[in-house]
Design a protein around this nucleic acid. Structure first.
Lengths: 225, 225
DNA sequence: CAATTCCTGTTAATAGTTTAACAGGGCAAA
DNA sequence: TTTGCCCTGTTAAACTATTAACAGGAATTG
């Protein structure tokens, strides 16, 4: 890959779609396909083929006329762009239902991204394992984050504890935070923050469902939205 | 409220923010506040006061100069816009960790929106209650959806079952679907669809975390988005 | 009662994202 | 080989969303 090429300025939405393209492509590869057309990717993702071609143009990948894109090559390229070389370690704070759901999602996947620790305040949970992920006390967060080189924290605690936990993560030296609680948090500018609120999403669906006539159909705010 | 006023064309993002404003306002009300400034709302939500004022302008609400907005009035107005008169019934399909997390989030809340049923394929779960929500067999979906007048379905099953479950929901006559699995689904145009994929979001955070220099800070992709 | 400050409401400008339009090249069929 | 079709790559336009700019009114101060 051209080392002069920087992908820093790719649109946010393109980054999200690349992640999705890759997962769809991996499935296609497992099904024995070697090439794929932009309109096929588009159909899987419910978007237009123009958008797919535009995204691939932005990352500088070219397909073959009348043959489409080489799936393996494209998977590799997307990996070069969105994965980090070293692998990234993630912690889940709050081992309730949501935290466990996230750990389940990731267990057994061969991502460059791994959940390597859980945290909770409940003494009964500390020391337990969930799909190979150990649960630690939030009091030990600073130590564990350093030891395990954790750079991303996912907050899945009850809303009442959100602020406190977020501050703890920041103090521990985390670089990115994904907040799944309905309570917005404050972080320093140098920390990347993404917030997603399930209640808001459900209320939004309810709003468009109750509308008398045709509602615009949105695909994935996706963290967005 | 002016009956001629239609809120059909409010921006998607505004709808999402209204839901969030309301929740923040309810907390303020409980704390004994009666009025609030746009910059106070903005600070809570990590947005600019201009955006708050713009959103409120769009819904036609006026504040008082040097006094701010009447919290109770604003809560009521937001309710008139985003709530439906009759209340909306929701089902969660997939009573795993994620499904249970959603039910927990909603239990005890006095929303116009209530989760009134869970579905699962696991016979061991059928008949159980979670926070007052009964778990039914997916085979009975059509019947239960009709009986309980369910209009929204939330999909929280494993990705491998997503398509099948989505089709079942559509056949049952649901009007809106919120898909939390990483597998995109197809629905007829008249059904409102929102998809959110946690893996994508986490990969996005990882992308911006690994970037050498300053990353743009986003607040809430939020359904999605 | 000026001058100042604070906060709202609105319009204008900018930024971000999607969609439309089209140029072009290769395969296929006649 | 010519015609038609299919698919890519790119530029331009449209659309959506955020931010800047500013007009204006009420409380506040000197």
């Amino acid at each position: 890959m051209d080392p002069n090429k920087s992908f820093k300025h790719l649109p946010h939405k393109t980054i999200e779609r690349l992640s999705q393209y890759r997962r769809a492509l991996l499935i296609c590869l497992n099904n024995g396909k070697s090439h794929i057309f932009s309109h096929e990717i588009a159909q899987i993702q419910h978007i237009t083929s123009v958008q797919v071609r535009r995204d691939l143009m932005l990352i500088g990948y070219s397909g073959t006329l009348r043959k489409g894109y080489n799936i393996q090559e494209l998977i590799d390229l997307i990996g070069e762009i969105i994965d980090s070389n070293e692998g990234i370690n993630v912690a889940v704070v709050g081992m309730g239902n949501l935290g466990r759901a996230l750990i389940n999602y990731f267990s057994g996947k061969r991502h460059k991204l791994s959940i390597v620790a859980g945290f909770d305040t409940n003494p009964d949970k500390i020391g337990n394992y969930m799909n190979g992920v150990e649960c630690f006390s939030v009091e030990d967060m600073h130590k564990i984050v350093k030891e395990k080189d954790i750079t991303i924290g996912i907050i899945t605690v009850p809303a009442s504890q959100t602020t406190e936990i977020c501050d703890l993560l920041v103090e521990s030296g985390i670089k990115g935070i994904l907040n799944y609680t309905p309570k917005p948090v404050n972080v320093p500018d140098e920390i990347y923050l993404e917030e997603y609120d399930m209640i808001t999403t459900l209320e939004k669906v309810a709003f468009y469902v109750k509308l008398p006539d045709e509602a615009p159909e949105t695909k994935q705010s996706k963290a967005r939205p």
